[in-house]
């Protein structure tokens, strides 16, 4: 499809539901509800917080209570998540493995059902390393995916729901030259991702890393949790009850949590199973790359770390062992 026809696609998509897309706010890009294509940042590197926020809210009410009567709170609504990069789509697929695993999380599952996803090719920078985590290309997890090949987009259709939006006349069948252009664009993107990290067997290396190296690697860590809160695959949430002044009604809220915070492994009575940043970092890295690879190489944790701790550098030091 011609790039000039994107506004048409945007308008038809908007009929499905409110469109949430990358928008530039100051120095950052965030996913916000938009009403026109002009507001959308089509070429961006990474959003501050990942688009998972549409499925697992940063802070969301899960139920209301009145005495010991509990009632589910769920806002049903269709929406279009527009302009999602391959790494973030792969991040959602990793979250699916957790949140759709039986018993599934109803809130997540229903939103996953309701929200249509339109992927978009990305503009990598020197912090991206998605080719090392196998997440530079989205094989699934979207309805439509737009690949920028110059003057046109190659549109991949993955679902029937997505197919419905490609029936208009401005969608053309792909020709040989389009395939070649697509291949060239993808190859160029992959080549531009210079950063590499070898993750094979890193879990066991994490396990045998001496405490002295951990202390050095985490010396600057502020235990602020930013790395987790911007991560597209972090699944942890915390739960709290908010009580009204009548002291019988209120709501239960869940909120993104971070395993770098002191409260994460705290148990009743005050015991803490991960008291320092050393244990917490070992846990975080184990969770991301220790067993199955749950990192998508988006680089957010490095970019948004106030202490400028670099995940890839940390993993390289762990591999070397010094």
């Amino acid at each position: 499809m011609a790039k000039a026809d994107l506004p048409k696609l945007f308008r038809t998509l908007a009929k499905y539901g409110p469109v949430v897309a990358p928008v530039r706010v100051g120095e950052n890009v965030v996913f916000r509800e938009v009403t026109s294509l002009e507001e959308v940042e089509l070429e961006y590197t990474r959003s501050l917080t990942p688009p998972k926020k549409l499925f697992l809210g940063p802070q969301e009410e899960i139920l209301k209570f009145d005495g010991e009567k509990y009632e589910e709170v769920f806002e049903d609504g269709k929406a279009v998540l527009f302009g999602v990069h391959a790494c973030d789509i792969n991040g959602l697929l990793k979250l699916d493995e957790i949140y759709l695993d039986s018993p599934q999380d109803e809130y997540y599952a229903r939103r996953r059902e309701n929200v249509m996803i339109v992927g978009m090719s990305c503009v990598p920078d020197e912090r991206c390393f998605c080719t090392s985590t196998g997440s530079s290309y989205a094989y699934g997890g979207f309805d439509l995916f737009l690949h920028d090949i110059g003057r046109e987009y190659v549109v991949r259709v993955r679902t029937e729901r997505g197919y419905e939006f490609t029936k208009d006349g401005y969608f053309k069948r792909m020709e040989e030259k389009d395939f070649l252009a697509f291949k060239k664009a993808e190859e160029k993107k992959v080549r531009s991702i210079k950063r590499k990290v070898d993750l094979a067997g890193i879990g066991d290396l994490i396990d045998v890393t001496p405490k002295s190296l951990w202390e050095e690697l985490t010396a600057k860590c502020l235990a602020c949790g930013s790395c987790n809160l911007v991560c597209p695959t972090c699944q942890c949430y915390d739960v709290l009850d908010v009580l009204e002044l009548d002291i019988r009604s209120g709501s239960r809220i869940r909120r993104w949590d971070s395993c770098m915070l002191k409260r994460h492994a705290l148990v009743a009575g005050g015991g803490n199973f991960r008291p320092t940043v050393v244990e917490r970092t070992a846990n975080r890295l184990s969770c991301k790359v220790g067993g199955e690879i749950r990192c998508v190489g988006c680089g957010r944790c490095t970019v948004y770390c106030p202490a400028k701790i670099d995940l890839v550098e940390m993993l390289e030091r762990i591999r070397v062992g010094a």
């Binding site: 706010v25 100051g26 120095e27 950052n28 965030v30 501050l48 917080t49 940063p58 802070q59 502020l222 235990a223 602020c224 949790g225 930013s226 809160l229 911007v230 709290l240 909120r255 993104w256 971070s258 915070l261 002191k262 409260r263 948004y304 106030p306 400028k308």
Partner: peptide
């Protein structure tokens, strides 16, 4: 319940950029 997590958490939940990095 005391708040024992840093302001950064609330900053990220609100999708603020990092003032320190800026």
């Amino acid at each position: 319940e005391a708040v024992d997590y840093p302001v950064c958490v609330e900053c990220k939940l609100r999708e603020n950029g990092c003032v320190l990095l800026e």
